[in-house]
Design a protein around this nucleic acid. Structure first.
Lengths: 268, 268
DNA sequence: GACGAAATTCTCATAATATAGGAATTACGC
DNA sequence: GCGTAATTCCTATATTATGAGAATTTCGTC
């Protein structure tokens, strides 16, 4: 582990559970001396990844906020998906939230949300919030298309959790369950992530047909009939198919941004 | 400059102008060897700050998206400001966007936006987008309350720009202009940032009465009478006064989040 | 389904710097 | 302005970062 990796591991301390760290606590946690912890913090503060809000109180910094904006600006998938998600939302009768989620390594994360209930969205999964990997239609439809090797690793690491969520009591069961999902082409879940909610999800692939994410609708189960679930499932599948994950066009996206961006550079 | 600082300086390469970098370009830009650039990239990829979307194509990574979510969750100011901003928005007759902006070192950045024109907000300043420091009501009302030493630095670094934006031809002029703003307690600007827009901004202070940000309304000038500007200015000032920037209560905020967060930890 | 060019990792000797501990300084609530 | 706690500064030693090029892998193309 290089010294840069140690500095970077400071960032991993900051989580939803704990958003404020002191130099002393970090030193203890990372097994380094206090002076080293201060050196780490100073490096991160000076590049904006951390911010010292108060004597002995360090939090994640402005560079993160700005970089997230940069990611949103440059993301070609987001640009393609947004209007599609709004369309999908218009097809929903009652309260609904549409989620775009993405697979990163072995995690599923919400990338974008569109809702018609602005002050109280049906789903609390906003951009950046990690989703449970084994529960909910959003994640399960992604699981369904993972390569066997990745599934084997999951089974090795979390056999109990997989069994507990009803995905299968053996690895063969697990694969069989996922095969059914693949045949359907979509996944419907009830109350697996949030109480009283229904999720309907369809897979999103990249140019090489690898699974990269999912598109889903979250509804109140009390407001939703089986009939409309079927109708919406078809719409979600169609919408997800429109979202082709073209990482490579990112180059063109950045060229497209250049004029506006150059104007902004001079903007002080 | 430590080696960790060099690794962190890689992140600064990623900007709105250029969102994709190759190891080779980064090596050239940073004056390091190709193998060192790969080592840097690997460190950043393994902690999620970068993502390799394709052979030779590195972009900002998932850790940034997730950390931004963590910041939003833990931010006590955001929690206080959101309902206030929604209230303010309801007081606007036509299309409007309400912005919460924050001062970081010598920069102003948008932290949150509420709008009543969801698909085409009146202002394109979303969370994370840096604002010009010298133009627009949002920034100028912050300038107005900066300590003299900071203003002197600004004048030293950007005398031409300050004169060009009409803030003053001499440092004395500059200070006099800002004094008027302070006496008003708010700032109105027309078309300084975006064409055909009016900005109305009021200052936000922390517990020690230091300026930390601003709250502003952006409107279409064509739809807005002088009369309603005055009415709204009073409302913005009142709303901004409600938002007290209490960095220290961040501790309590994190305690408040713990239950939900712990539940999520077990969520895989 | 193998070829070839480009990307990426590996290896290693040397130069550079990260580290802990404590002293010195600074910040800040009271 | 005082006193405690936070933060920076200092230095010798142990550890690691670096570049150059060789070795390997990746992936588009045929």
């Amino acid at each position: 582990m290089s010294s840069a990796d140690k500095v970077l591991s400071v960032l991993a301390l900051f989580s939803a559970e704990r958003s404020v760290w002191s130099a002393e606590d970090a030193a203890t946690q990372l097994n380094v001396s206090l002076s080293t912890a201060y050196r780490y913090f100073n490096s991160l503060v000076s590049c904006g990844l951390l911010d010292r809000i108060y004597r002995n109180h360090y939090v994640l910094g402005p560079a993160i906020i700005e970089h997230d904006w940069q990611i949103r600006m440059a993301d070609p998938v987001l640009a393609v998906a947004k209007p599609i998600m709004l369309d999908l939302l218009r097809s929903c009768d009652g309260s609904a939230t549409v989620l775009l989620c993405r697979l990163y390594r072995q995690r599923v994360m919400c990338i974008h949300q569109e809702t018609n209930h602005y002050e109280h969205p049906v789903s609390s999964y906003e951009r950046g919030r990690p989703r449970p990997m084994l529960r909910g239609a959003t994640s399960k439809i992604i699981l369904a298309y993972l390569p066997t090797r990745t599934l084997a690793n999951l089974w090795r690491d979390y056999p109990k959790e997989i069994a507990a969520t009803g995905l299968g009591a053996s690895f063969e069961d697990f694969k069989a369950t996922l095969k059914v999902l693949r045949r359907n082409g979509f996944c419907v879940s009830r109350g697996e992530v949030d109480h009283g909610r229904i999720g309907i999800a369809a897979p999103i692939f990249d140019a090489h047909d690898r699974i990269v994410g999912s598109l889903s609708i979250v509804l109140y189960s009390a407001e939703t009939s089986d009939r409309s679930i079927n109708r919406l499932a078809a719409l979600v599948v169609a919408a997800a198919r429109e979202v082709v994950w073209t990482g490579r066009t990112e180059q063109t996206a950045h060229v497209g941004n250049t004029v506006e961006a150059a104007a902004q550079r001079k903007a002080l």
